[in-house]
Amino acid sequence: MRLLTHNMLSSNIKGVSNGFPLRLDVENSVSKEVEFNPDFLRNMFSKIDWKALVDAARSMGYAELPEEAPDSSMLDSDEFLKKFHHALLELHLDEGALICPETGRRFPVNKA
């Protein structure tokens, strides 16, 4: 599972008031090359919860993203876009689980 998807998911278990972000339990992560498309990244940027992405990427051993939510002028920087691209689309949680932040319920993740 890519971090793009992790960033969109929110636990909807009954009674949970804030199911986002799901915690990551990373047993194994892999990186797969994906074609770089700046248009997609610019389109997605406003929808991404930056902190959740930074934390998730770090838990998978990737710490290159700026800590602070960048302003949209960064979307002209190829260097920034490449890092954003890698974190969002190329890092995969291959084996592990997503964990509901309120109930602690585990959703197992396996194979990409």
Partner: peptide, 20 residues
């Protein structure tokens, strides 16, 4: 695509306003 094992009848667990 990323695949989720889920029952649509229980509602989709996605953040508001994010899907195009």
């Amino acid at each position: 695509g990323d695949l989720l094992l889920a029952d649509m009848g229980q509602g989709l667990g996605l953040r508001p306003g994010v899907i195009d």
